[in-house]
Design a binder for these strands. Structure first.
Lengths: 118, 118
DNA sequence: TTGACTGGTAGGGAATCACCTACCTATTGT
DNA sequence: ACAATAGGTAGGTGATTCCCTACCAGTCAA
């Protein structure tokens, strides 16, 4: 609980809300695939005015998904993946549901709670 | 790509949008921990009128995250975890970013694109 | 210092969201 | 048939989202 990871609070909410928008997910993909980039380069990929992208970047920043580093008059945005690790943590308890289902015994487990063994 | 998984389309959008709401995430948790349940039992856990919960269930249904099975006058909702597997697939290419960062060589990788090796 | 450039903030508008109160349908029990 | 129960749909409202057009602040180059 050092970083407040996976507690199900406001931080979690901000991350999921940030990921709810396709433009913002695309920004994350660009930063992942092309490395850190200034705003304008990012903006070239979208059919959208720059101020709108700036607001998306703000949402991502407040969710901790990107960081900015000033370099002259540019702001270089960089992917910060740590909150995505928390999403994976959130996802983890669901994993056996799709795994088990693939093995064909999902129906049995679906009818059973899982908190007995937690 | 058989089920249209992870293509970055409307289906993906519906799943992320569904997960953006804390009430809906809580519904998923309840279905996971307690197994399939009728609407009313789910509704007891929320400070919200039943019609509102019904709409949340509709969003979850249209995202493929729950299914309903009619049993008399009840509707039993069940967790459908397959779309969450797609979220995990979406998450996967980001994984090395938080892993590598933990090892202290994140800065190097952050500055490099990753699509060369894809 | 003036002008170009980068990128954020202010404020507004249309659309969507999340809730509500009615109301409707279907099923079950008497 | 009638009343009660389960749960969805209709329609309305305030808040939030996502976009826009100005406009402002900081940096660099002449």
């Amino acid at each position: 609980m050092s970083t407040g990871a996976g507690t199900g609070t406001a931080a979690e909410d901000r991350v999921f809300a940030a990921l709810a928008n396709a433009t913002r997910r695309e920004v994350l993909r660009l930063l992942r695939e092309r490395g850190p980039q200034p705003v304008q380069v990012l903006a070239d990929h979208f059919d959208m005015r720059r101020p709108s992208l700036s607001e998306h970047l703000k949402v991502l920043r407040e969710a901790g998904l990107v960081s900015e580093q000033r370099s002259g008059r540019q702001r270089i945005y960089r992917l910060e993946a740590a909150p995505l690790a928390e999403v994976q943590d959130w996802l983890h308890p669901y994993e056996r549901f799709w795994r088990d289902r693939l093995k064909g015994l999902g129906d049995l487990l679906d009818r059973l709670p899982d908190d007995d063994r937690s």
